[in-house]
Design a protein around this nucleic acid. Sequence first.
RNA 1: UGAGGUAUAGCUCAGUGGUAAGAGCGUCACGCUUACAUCGUGAAAGUCAUAGGUUCGAAUCCUAUUACCUCAACCA
Length: 877
Amino acid sequence: MEIPSKYSAQAVESKWYDYWMTHNYFHSTPDEREPYTIVIPPPNVTGVLHMGHMLNNTIQDVLIRRARLLGKNACWVPGTDHASIATEAKVVAKLKAQGINKNDLTREEFLKHAWEWTEEYGGVILEQLKKLGCSCDWDRTKFTMDDDMSEAVIKVFVDLYNKGLIYRGFRMVNWDPEAKTTLSDEEVIHIEKQGLLYYLEYQIEGSDEKLTIATTRPETIFGDTAICINPTDERFRHLKGKNAIVPICGRVIPIIEDEYVDIEFGTGCLKVTPAHDENDKVLGDKHNLEVIDIFNEDASLNSFGMHYEGQDRFVVRKAITKELEAAGLIAKTENYINKVGTSERTKAVIEPRLSDQWFLKMEDLAKPALDAVLTNGDVKLFPKKFENTYRHWMENIRDWNISRQLLWGQQIPAYFYGDGKEDFVVAENRDDALRLAKDKTGNSSLTAADLTQDSDALDTWFSSWLWPMSVFDGIRNPENEEIKYYYPTNDLVTGPDILFFWVARMIVAGYEYKDEKPFENVYLTGLVRDKQRRKMSKSLGNSPDALKLIDDYGADGVRVGLLLSSAAGNDLMFDEDLCQQGKQFANKIWNAFRLVQGWEVDIAINQPNSSKIAVEWFESKFQKTIAEIEDHFSKYRLSDALMATYKLIWDDFASWLLEIVKPAYQQPIDTKTLESINTIFEDILKILHPFMPFLTEEIWHYIKERSPEEALIISRWPEAQPINEVLISEFDFASEVISGVRNIRKQKNIAFKDAIGFSIVNNENVAPTFDGVISKLGNLESFNYVKEPVEGALTYRVKSNEYFIPMEGSIDVEAEVKKLTEELSYTEGFLKSVQKKLSNERFVAGAPEQVVASEKKKEADALAKIETLKSSLASLQ
RNA sequence: UGAGGUAUAGCUCAGUGGUAAGAGCGUCACGCUUACAUCGUGAAAGUCAUAGGUUCGAAUCCUAUUACCUCAACCA
């Protein structure tokens, strides 16, 4: 069979993905096996794959594939999120490009466009996940706006409303004037901006006195309804009970007192604008102030803005500054840096705004979710450090504003039958609503046409918080077989940036609706950054094209590259070179396979002892390593698990084992060794499969013809066997001996093909187990045990054993003496420090026995080595 | 401002009070030895941020300082 010398990922990867799909290996149905379930963090339906997706989906796939190999019923549920504001913004932009204004469309028309868009672009990202090798159960693909998913959302809304947890409130919310919707606190990003602090002068009513007030927002003076001073502030005591006059509009407003005002800041007095500032709203409520909203919904000024009506807030800020300046009402301006809230999606500066919104009471709901993570450990966060952040957020949780002034999303199931604030009912459908409305009003002549559904949609997260339940239809049919089997799920893999948006809320919903956690472990990946530690973002253009990476390095290579750089929970500095390393690793394994594949068997040959012992050694080493890998997985240290696998394959398998058993050029190999090597190779493919699924499946089928039932993806993880530790430590010693030979060859430029003589003074009484191996890898022509140092030879030592390689011609005695002297002085220094410890009575008395014993052993070893070195020196001189 | 985190080789990071501190990558030297130059062999490279303290013993625990990161609140 002709096998190409370079591994080519492209052809291989699509072939095996198709094969897996054809044979339905990803599909899961409940059975008697233990389930292992992951629900995907649903990406935005119209999104494209970026590095963050690549990372966390690679991790999920590793976990799922490993669970499958461990014999569990592995189920990975994929899907997408409707991402209300992001998607709506895209649709609006697209319509705008076609000359269509969203406001000219009816709800139905707009939604039609949105669905068209979703159908056109939706799912692109899922196709990209397939390229990465993700073994999701595609038959279960869900979308947060699927009919059944929406039904669950509405059912939950109605239920929470009936429990008195959802209420309608006139509240200060974060208003995005561009998207014309509210945002949750979490969707607001505070950005430091250079602004100005303006010192405005307010006339005191009935006096010539002027009061100077500092503000960053002079355009909001139209909404001023009071001036506030601190009651303890001597400077303003005389103003108590007086009124001030707002510049330009001339409105008379009271001067009030409140401890809230910071005497030190600005001028020590504050203008109060209850409609446009959260803190001012609090003050306003406390002092019964008038509330004047001066903005339209696009943050242009309304009629309260007088001659600025219709102009944008930032335009007005400049203009009004000029007007005030001209009137001599600005005392001064100062540079001032403050953090301005901006919309995560549209980047628009957020305007605090009072409006009627729907809220979910969080305090009581949060309790079980808080306990689950912090008290009883039902849900474990990896890494643990996020627990503190979680606690802080959950303990200070605020009511959740769940309404959005958007069309794309589940429409709030509240039906108004009148104009009053309380003239509504909440129901799952219009018929129920009508019944309720009739009951509530006592008006039996109401008709469906009299009901108007609230036009707002629900926050996207109000559907995704149900995700682990609703994908199994657990809300609508709480007793169905699937939810009972798959819930709670096992692992959730996501970024720490949505710990509160999503993770915490899923835990809340889980306890409220299933009285149980939604998942056992939460693995929080780091953010993907570039080499300069900058976040990857479109605007910086520092995010590599995910699909191009896969083209260049193969999905296996990219997976390895991502995982190698991702210690759990730390941000990862993504470096394309790591994908290169992944690709090289694939090539290495490929060539190891080519080597083994090319061996001819001769049944007449007996297995050489060196091969026999090397195979035994590797089997133990393999067992030891998979135990380590197991441990890494249990701590979600995937990069360590991968690195252990990497070293096992590259160093132990390829560099040691294969080199030891490799027959001479064009010579055949014995049957026994080849069989062992093939078995070992298969075991290696199994443990590597979760990381590099394509390459491993390819080689698996090259090794021998296999039926679909024998595919690697559904094979079984190697079983644990006893570990021979003695063999492992003997090998470690032997490898040092081999290194010594190589070193001397290197120093003296002796080519490997020239066999050399070799003698050993075995002070350590090392067993001869690996002598054959040393001979082979050192290309030794002889292997002599001697009692006395060999003259005319180069030497090196391992512990107190001394090795001699006879040289033709003269030995550089001076260099040998120098080398020995250096080694001697190092060892003596080491001995001294050990003896210092041992002569310390408090150490011997206080340290555990084991530690003292190990120090004594060190002392004995050092003494023996010094003995050897001294006798060598003596023989040279 | 508050809370949390981090500081170990050129880079990215392990290191669980007890080895004169480890890995991968990179660097340097030598080598195309017939699976692989996407390779092999070897080497160099650290004041464990700084200053104190606890301990027989500290990279590890404590305190302070400095620098950086994340999250929250931001003050007109």
